Measured scan of single mutants.
Amino acid sequence: MQFKLIINGKTLKGEITLEAVDAAEAEKKFKQYANDNGIDGEWTYDDATKTFTVTE
């Protein structure tokens, strides 16, 4: 399945997509990506659109 991450950071904004088996795997990958890029914020997930959002 394809999942999307919307980044609303203080210095980094944008979207990325990835393939994952389920939402838990996608969340783990997205949070690792955010951590690697210094993004720390409030996370939400919309199951209907398979979209994660992180807002700093």
Rank of each mutant, 00 (worst) to 15 (best):
I39W: 06
V54D: 00
D36S: 10
G38M: 10
K10M: 06
T11F: 07
A48C: 05
T11C: 08
I16D: 02
Q2D: 03
V54W: 02
D40E: 04
L12W: 15
E56G: 04
T49A: 12
E15K: 07
D47A: 09
K10Q: 11
T53G: 05
A24L: 11
K31P: 00
D22C: 03
E25Y: 09
E15V: 06
E15M: 12
K28G: 06
T49C: 04
E25S: 10
M1G: 11
D40H: 13
T44D: 09
I6A: 04
A34R: 02
F3G: 00
K28I: 13
T44W: 14
E19K: 07
A48G: 09
N37L: 07
F30C: 03
E56P: 10
I16H: 14
M1L: 11
Q32P: 02
N8R: 12
D47N: 15
L18S: 08
V21W: 07
N35A: 12
E56D: 05
K10F: 13
Y33A: 03
F30H: 01
L12D: 07
F30Q: 00
N35T: 09
M1H: 08
G9L: 15
E56M: 15
I39G: 01
G14H: 10
D36E: 12
F52T: 01
Q32Y: 07
N37A: 14
V54I: 06
G38S: 08
W43R: 00
E56L: 08
F30D: 00
K31D: 02
E56Y: 13
K29T: 10
D36H: 14
Q32S: 15
W43H: 01
A34P: 00
Y45R: 03
G38F: 10
E27C: 07
N37F: 05
L12F: 08
K10D: 05
T53K: 11
V21C: 06
T49G: 11
D40N: 15
T11K: 11
N8M: 15
Y33T: 04
T53R: 09
N35K: 10
V54M: 06
W43Q: 01
V54C: 03
A34L: 06
T11I: 09
L18D: 04
K13W: 12
A48N: 15
T11N: 12
K13S: 06
K29F: 09
D40P: 09
E27G: 07
K29D: 05
E42I: 09
K13H: 11
E19P: 05
D22A: 07
M1T: 09
L5H: 00
T11L: 13
T44F: 11
Y33R: 03
K28Q: 15
K31Q: 05
A48H: 05
Q32A: 12
V21A: 09
D36T: 14
D47S: 15
D47Y: 13
E42R: 15
A23C: 04
K29Y: 11
I7T: 04
G38L: 13
T17Q: 07
V21N: 11
D47W: 07
K28W: 13
K31F: 05
N8D: 04
I7D: 01
K31S: 05
T55F: 13
A48K: 12
E56R: 05
Y45V: 02
A26N: 00
G38Q: 14
A26P: 00
Q2N: 07
G41T: 01
K29L: 13
A34C: 03
I6M: 05
N35R: 08
L5S: 01
E27V: 11
T17F: 14
G9V: 06
N37H: 11
Y33Q: 03
L5N: 01
L18I: 14
N35Y: 13
V21G: 10
V21H: 07
Y45C: 02
V21L: 07
D22I: 04
D22R: 03
F52W: 08
N35F: 10
D46H: 09
A26W: 00
N35C: 04
G38I: 05
D47R: 04
Y45G: 00
E25N: 09
T44E: 15
I7K: 01
E27H: 13
D46M: 08
A26D: 00
D36G: 09
W43P: 01
G14P: 04
E19N: 04
G14V: 12
Q2C: 05
A34W: 03
L5C: 03
K13E: 06
Y45N: 01
D47L: 08
K29V: 08
A48V: 10
K28S: 10
F30K: 00
F52M: 02
L12I: 11
G14I: 10
D46W: 07
D46R: 04
F30I: 03
K10G: 08
W43L: 04
I16A: 07
I7Y: 07
E19H: 10
D46P: 00
F3N: 00
E42C: 06
G9C: 03
G41F: 03
T44Y: 15
Q2P: 08
L5I: 03
A23R: 15
K50F: 11
L12V: 12
N35E: 14
A23G: 08
L12S: 07
A26F: 00
M1D: 06
T17G: 07
G38D: 05
L18P: 01
G9Q: 08
E15L: 12
K28H: 07
Q2L: 06
L5Y: 01
A48I: 10
E56F: 12
G9I: 10
F52H: 02
T53P: 00
T17M: 08
I7R: 01
K31H: 08
W43Y: 03
A23M: 10
T49Q: 06
K10L: 04
Y45M: 02
N35V: 15
K28C: 04
E25L: 05
A24T: 15
M1K: 15
A23D: 05
E42H: 13
A48R: 04
G9H: 13
T49V: 09
K10S: 04
G41Q: 01
G41I: 02
E15I: 06
V21K: 12
N37E: 06
F52R: 00
Y45F: 07
V21D: 14
A34F: 03
T55L: 13
Y33I: 07
K31Y: 05
V21F: 15
